[in-house]
């Protein structure tokens, strides 16, 4: 079960550290850091049910405005 109750002992310290690792980065560089961070944390959590709940909450309320590079085909 995904814990959405307060769980960080020092929330402001955490938030400052999160911003600090993105300091002076281009959006592309920031994306790389975020991707690594998500992978490291996901493995640490390990519980697929929790991860799915977190993924679902993260995606909530966003209507796709882009398009993936695949094509539907009929042969």
């Amino acid at each position: 079960m995904l814990n959405t109750e307060p769980n960080l002992a020092a929330p402001d310290d955490f938030y400052e550290a999160l911003l600090a690792i993105h300091q002076d980065l281009t959006p592309e560089q920031a994306r790389i850091v975020d991707a690594r961070l998500i992978l490291l944390l996901s493995n640490h959590i390990g519980d697929m049910a929790v991860l799915r709940q977190a993924m679902e909450r993260a995606r909530q309320g966003i209507t796709p405005a882009g398009q993936d590079a695949t094509i539907t085909i009929r042969a």
Binding site: A69, T70, I71, T72, I73, R74, A75
Partner: peptide
């Protein structure tokens, strides 16, 4: 008949 799916760019 047809075969349906995804093609990759």
């Amino acid at each position: 008949l047809e075969s349906k799916g995804r093609s990759f760019r």
